[in-house]
Design a protein around this nucleic acid. Sequence first.
DNA 1: TTGAAAGCGCTAACAC
DNA 2: GTGTTAGCGCTTTCAA
Lengths: 354, 354
Amino acid sequence: VATIKQVAQSANVSTATVSRVLNKNPRVKSELRKRVERAIVELDYSPSRVARMMRVHKSQVIGLIISDIVNPFFTALVRAVEDVAHENGFTLLLGNSDENSAKEQMYFEVLAEERVAGIIIVPSCSDDCSYLRHCHVPLVAVDRKIEGMDIDTVVLDNVLGAYLATNHLLELGHRRIGLIGAPAYVSVGLERRQGYEKALLKHGLAIDESLIRLGDFKERGGYQATRELLLLDQRPTALFAANNLMTLGALRALQEAHVAVPQDMSVVGFDDFHWGSLMQPSLTSVRQPTYQIGQVAAQLLMRRLQDGPAPAPELVVLSPELMIRNSSAPFRVHSPRAIVPDRSSLFLHESHVG
Amino acid sequence: VATIKQVAQSANVSTATVSRVLNKNPRVKSELRKRVERAIVELDYSPSRVARMMRVHKSQVIGLIISDIVNPFFTALVRAVEDVAHENGFTLLLGNSDENSAKEQMYFEVLAEERVAGIIIVPSCSDDCSYLRHCHVPLVAVDRKIEGMDIDTVVLDNVLGAYLATNHLLELGHRRIGLIGAPAYVSVGLERRQGYEKALLKHGLAIDESLIRLGDFKERGGYQATRELLLLDQRPTALFAANNLMTLGALRALQEAHVAVPQDMSVVGFDDFHWGSLMQPSLTSVRQPTYQIGQVAAQLLMRRLQDGPAPAPELVVLSPELMIRNSSAPFRVHSPRAIVPDRSSLFLHESHVG
DNA sequence: TTGAAAGCGCTAACAC
DNA sequence: GTGTTAGCGCTTTCAA
């Protein structure tokens, strides 16, 4: 690998001149510039950003750590962040924490040590993110809040979203509504549960813990939670799944158990799938302004990267919207009970509910 | 931001000792080690990987450049690469080229200049990737070949896959089969078209250029191609879409035009959706061993990262499998023609076919 | 307009 | 065991 020194030697100039050519400094005689450029091509030289970074402590790279790359919600987020980054001359490097704090920390450290200009993160855990506390680059949280950290944050009004979903089912006459939720140590999990409970309470219903299962944001979690709910003596007549992948898992479990949606079970999901309309039936769900969430997060980071006085950290809360489609229907007295899956074939695991 | 010097000063040792502590060198007296560790915490010091890299020219980071982050095929690939990388103690940084050569080059340069240990790339363009030619780190191509570059490569047998799909439709009695293909400058596009043509020729049919439309690997491309095909005087009775997102676009166009699948149009796709079973009808498609493709690519890179003599570049070709489900059905004399979308509402664009 | 030289933060001989 | 020191490849004064 060629270095600036070799280029300088080959072009018969000083390294300073090569550097000037590299940085498009205008006051280099065109003859020297030519010589340098030729040497660069000849030696197949590419400047070491590492060495450069060593001197000028600023990079045009930002990092984004998401929690699940196979989730379309997050990939849409990535697209938004990427668009804003490119508009501003930044490159985006991505890490996938896989909902795993250890991996998240690893990515965080790699990015921090690469000295990227800033980091956007979907924290896999909203509290006790000790390593995030000593962060030396601008940090913005997206989709999920980080407890007690005063940083730029953009999230959805999750309580409202879950409330709208649950309330919709209640107004359809359902009284036993299963929640396929997520762990409370992720703000999204906590808040969506709060919205669910709020709607129930408002309708004068008690919280029935047996109707609440906590999944892992992935399809498998929604699948298992649904199988468990189907085994209840008093099966729910409606399900609210707190994210997109878990909704998918729920639908698969329902399909396998030959529970017809919405005839035998109403289902409301969270997050839109752009291909939802091809599903049968089309899915009633809480839509988030996904692209906008990513966009605003990126813009907050860009703002913070400008030089000038640091702006006060901002919390942006965006609004969800309930999209009523065909997977939810009025409650009716239960039809002959659908076939229950064979108990022995169930992979039961301990419920996370305390 | 603290430096190693400050830590040394604060702990009353030399920078060498701090460095030894950092690198877990065992021959440091535990007392000094304690002092250093305390200083590190106190100063909230995090070593600069940039400076480190300057000395030891090797990093535990690899890069992966994919062409479309919203495509589930590529995110599954990412998961595979990630798993192998982590098993081997590497961290994976991701870039999304968005099927755009310029962006791809940008990511490539950033990763190369950050001096990652190696790069895996889904080239957005299979020829004339001049910047890839002077690559100083190990490079492996995945999903798509790069013309004339002798590097580790793992791809699917695309000709076979497309052949299987088309042949299946032919055996069902279809004679006018539309191809929703992809540009020939991407190896996948070229090869899938070749497989399509091969099947037609084998059945004694001529290639009808009017039945061939080239999309962009995205939903929109499949959607537009399908609308165009539906406008033909002699509409095809079956469609083969050369990737997953374009299949989705095709299905949407068909749905909008009230063309029933498979009654009025058989459809075969490429790549499985893991949620395909929730679609109505379930999709006949060419399945690729997606995870394995990523896995092998990562393993090839890992192998090349070992020290020792460089192994000869390898070309791994994996096999597709046709999954016959409900979106393809035997040809039958055409039913009363479905409603044609209003011509004026179509966004027609020039066909890419030469 | 160009060159010489200092130094960014770290590691690895080498010396003690 | 620990400290001293010479760079890694670049940018950037400062002089010329």
